[in-house]
Write a protein that binds this DNA or RNA. Structure first.
Lengths: 366, 366
DNA sequence: GTCACAATTGTTTGCGCTAACATTTCAGGG
DNA sequence: CCCTGAAATGTTAGCGCAAACAATTGTGAC
């Protein structure tokens, strides 16, 4: 079609020649600059489609010194939450016209974090989103002090950096409050690893809800997110657990716990109620189907990008801004019921409501 | 430290000035060109560390017309296999000095694939790895005919393009052969969606093993990878299934099946043996722990990168090359046992071994 | 018609690097 | 000592684009 067409992809100058304008006008059309006449714009657009021209992003990056790519730093992609968060990030970033480059960390060491940051820095990313932020990771990040904006998909709402957060604590309280409403008074917890913000937040939520209801904390067992650790916790709980209900910090550990309880054997929920966290798709098919807390991780990812974009524009404005946290929800299934062995006590308490159960929602029977 | 240092990051010319050489010599040092004197190299290296110089990858890309980034096209990151594969890809690519850009597909439509390819093409990726290749996706890919090398992490060993494969069929046969060795003669299958290569391969492996053992295929139910579809299949199977064993195309569906069986109630493995596929970490904590097929997805990812790298160098050589497929393994746990209801028949058959059970491994009692 | 001013277009420059070519340096044979 | 060729280094010219500046056109008031 066009004049001097070699076999190389067309560049801006080719378009300019075909459209009968200067290459700068072509640039202006592409970048939606205001001062371009309708006629010129039309000609340029025609030439672009005729030649199948595509702007060379790399050249643009060199000229503008902006790479249009954001880096995502993650460690545990095979976990449900992070994987979903990444999905949300990718989608939002691509919609915003950015490229998404990823780096995964096998282990969180200073060296590995530094290496990954190096990688991103080489690439000239314009921002970094940290999914799965260990405190260790954030600390390493602070020490390295990357020159680009860093946003963390975190639950540490006290952190001074920019980020998007899901209110993990509120989710945990939801779970525990549900158990309290059912009449449980001995509510234990299987936590995630204590070097994860999420795990700490969920544990604190458990504690808070208990304190509000003037209930003593039940048995606390430390897990590591893995089903195996939930299983081990279940075995440790033994045949006569010191609790009538367990709030478990993620669904995988809850799965392990369920298996251990079956093996004791203990009936669920009659002998022990269980609430998980995350609501991964499989949770509905555990045996019995797991009552759990649902989090919108994709939304979290989206918010990370939103926060990042904003930080690019507000350029040094107050960087402590947090997006509205994502709201967790309780998903009721079949692993919770009123406590059996304490039924008597429960009924007795209900008729003249125990004074310590102050919030009305908590003392009601449903 | 250095002379005229503004606040901008140092560039090659700065290094050259400090080292007392030309910028081209600096370039040669960085790129490990042979003809550089030891002295010059040393000076340049000293200057680089002194200034904290980092090569601008974007400028390099513009000059060399190579972006050093590879695109990963994926759809279902929350599935175990794809997530793990991505992990392997990322690691291998980064080790090979490449950047990894991702694009995720919500739905497999021609438009969405075209859009993602556009995205990569804009970015100037040097290769694309397709994780989770639907036939539909590959077809769209073929029609668009991207100008870059495409490698697929696929199990379609007949496909004409380059790729790395895991021998899904062999895994399926492993599963079925195990059941046959236990004495099962009525072995059913719950498949994945038929527009996934993996699902088709596994189904065919099931059929092959059965045929080899001269056994008729048991009930075949079509699922969609989700636990829910496995559950539905379990309900469809009913209280008196027409099989004594089921080979399930992934662990999630097996989980759903397990729940359905518990609810019938049917005992596992006494009433029905179950074998899954993938060996995701949770499988060991299903109730009962799931016998399944383990695949090394990370290795698959690594091989994709290896295949891609090779295709870059062999440049148009025979592109049908396939890397050695990843070997699947049978992981024995607690969901398989000898068939109970057919025990009599089984024993009878064993004493004078049925002529149709030809391969010795299949007719033996273990 | 002329002038002032805005709207529109074109030209030049350089982003930071590498490839290609040009030049200098060095070693060894005659 | 000069000549030859290789090794080492320097110089120039883009890669394709956008920013800054320069030039041109058009518009309306007078």
């Amino acid at each position: 079609m066009a004049g001097t067409e070699f076999n190389r992809p067309p560049v801006m100058k080719d378009v300019a020649r075909v459209a009968g304008v200067s290459h700068q006008t072509v640039s202006r059309v592409i970048n939606d600059h205001p001062n371009v006449s309708a006629k010129a714009r039309q000609q340029v657009e025609a030439a672009i489609t005729e030649l199948g021209y595509r702007r060379n992003v790399i050249a643009r990056s060199l000229a503008t010194r902006r790479s249009q790519t954001i880096g995502v730093l993650t460690s545990d992609l095979s976990q449900f939450g992070p994987a979903r968060t990444l999905l949300g990030i990718e989608r939002a970033a691509r919609e915003a016209g950015h490229f998404v480059s990823i780096a995964t960390l096998r282990e969180i060491t200073f060296a590995s974090v530094a290496h990954a940051l190096d990688h991103f820095w080489n690439q000239g990313v314009e921002g970094i989103v940290v999914v799965v932020p260990h405190p260790g990771l954030l600390e390493a990040l602070d020490r390295i002090a990357p020159r680009v904006a860093v946003v963390a998909a975190t639950s540490d709402t006290r952190r001074s950096s920019l980020g998007a957060a899901v209110d993990q604590r509120a989710g945990a309280r939801l779970a525990v409050q549900h158990l309290i409403e059912l009449g449980h008074t001995r509510i234990g917890h299987i936590s995630g690893p204590m070097d994860w913000f999420d795990a700490v937040e969920r544990l604190e939520g458990w504690l808070e809800a208990l304190t509000e209801a003037s209930l003593p904390p039940g048995p606390l067992l430390y897990g590591d997110w893995s089903a195996n650790s939930g299983y081990a916790a279940g075995l440790a709980l033994g045949r006569e657990p010191a609790a009538t209900a367990m709030f478990v910090s993620n669904d995988q550990m809850a799965l392990g716990l369920l298996r251990a309880l079956h093996e004791q054997p203990l009936r669920i929920p009659q002998d022990l109620s269980v609430v998980g966290y995350d609501d991964q798709p499989e949770a509905a098919y555990f045996y019995p189907p797991l009552t759990t807390i649902r989090l919108d991780f994709e939304e979290l990812g989206r918010q990370c990008i939103a926060a990042l974009m904003e930080s690019q524009h507000l350029e040094g404005a107050d960087s402590k801004r947090f997006v509205e946290p994502v709201e967790p929800r309780l998903i009721l299934r079949a692993t919770t019921a009123q406590p059996r062995r304490e039924e008597g006590r429960w009924r007795r308490r209900l008729s003249p409501p125990g004074p310590q159960l102050q919030p009305p929602a908590l003392s009601a029977n449903r």
